[in-house]
């Protein structure tokens, strides 16, 4: 109760940050976190087999995956989003297919674009880490008579994940920042909420600085999480004191 009273007193006389606009920002925060979290999760799940395939010696496996990562890393995310959101409606009869209930909303086209984009980057990050596995570890695994699959599971992937961690942490932060473009397809994410407040009150500074602070807080949360993970998982690499 006291907090509520304090809150109302804080907002008293403020024309822009009313409980209503703060509600918009809150809804925007929920959408942004959902969008980024779900696309990163699916992207990660996709990226592991893709990265293994990409490091394969068989060209018919590695080349198509290379083409995919090349296209999605070589074009702006905004363009990918436009193609998936506005482009699909030019296929005649798309409205009658089972995909339409998903594509009709703004959320799912954005989710598809973000997932495909982050999967492409994550694939390349993991591929680099897999390639950097020390030769000695592989030879030792072979000497123990491990099969290719067992070696991948026990030796290569665990150490590759550790090596990929710092680069992957950056990818997560990039994804959060890239999600700001979701509002161009009418999604009311954090940036969408800021644009709404900006347009409603003609107050660019207040609307955007407030949202920038929220993004900063999110970024620092991610940063601390990855720092903690690195401390735990890369402990063996720290100099012994």
């Amino acid at each position: 109760m006291e907090i509520l009273a304090w809150f109302h007193e804080l907002l008293d006389g403020n024309l822009i940050f009313t409980p209503q606009t703060l509600g918009y920002y809150w809804d925007g925060l929920v959408v942004t976190v959902q969008l980024v979290f779900v696309s990163l999760l699916i992207g990660l799940v996709l990226a592991v087999p893709l990265a293994i395939g990409r490091s394969s010696g068989r060209r018919w496996i590695s080349l198509p995956i290379y083409a995919y990562t090349y296209v999605f890393r070589g074009t702006p995310l905004l363009i990918q989003l436009y193609i998936i959101y506005y482009g699909v409606v030019f296929f005649d009869g798309i409205q009658e297919t089972f995909l339409w209930p998903l594509l009709r909303e703004a959320f799912y086209p954005a989710l598809i674009a973000f997932t495909l984009n982050t999967a492409a980057y994550t694939t390349e990050i993991f591929r680099g880490a897999i390639k950097a596995t020390p030769k000695g570890e592989i030879e030792a695994a072979r000497a123990y008579g491990m099969s290719q699959a067992l070696m991948m599971r026990r030796i290569i992937l665990p150490s590759a994940f550790r090596r990929a961690l710092p680069a992957y942490g950056n990818e997560v932060i990039f994804m959060l920042h890239a999600s700001a473009i979701a509002s161009v397809v009418t999604l009311m994410d954090l940036t969408g909420a800021a644009r709404f407040v900006y347009a409603r009150f003609y107050a660019p500074f207040e609307a955007f600085i407030f949202v920038a602070v929220i993004y900063l807080c999110l970024t620092f949360t991610i940063l601390f999480f990855f720092r903690y993970l690195e401390k735990r998982l890369l402990a063996h690499l720290r100099p012994q004191s």
Binding site: Y86, V89, Q95, R104, A106, T186, F196
Partner: peptide
């Protein structure tokens, strides 16, 4: 309510049955 930057985008999505 879906809010668009331009009126053309509104018509596009009306046409697309969104």
């Amino acid at each position: 309510i879906r809010r668009y930057t331009s009126g053309d985008d509104v018509l596009n999505d009306l046409r697309a049955e969104r």
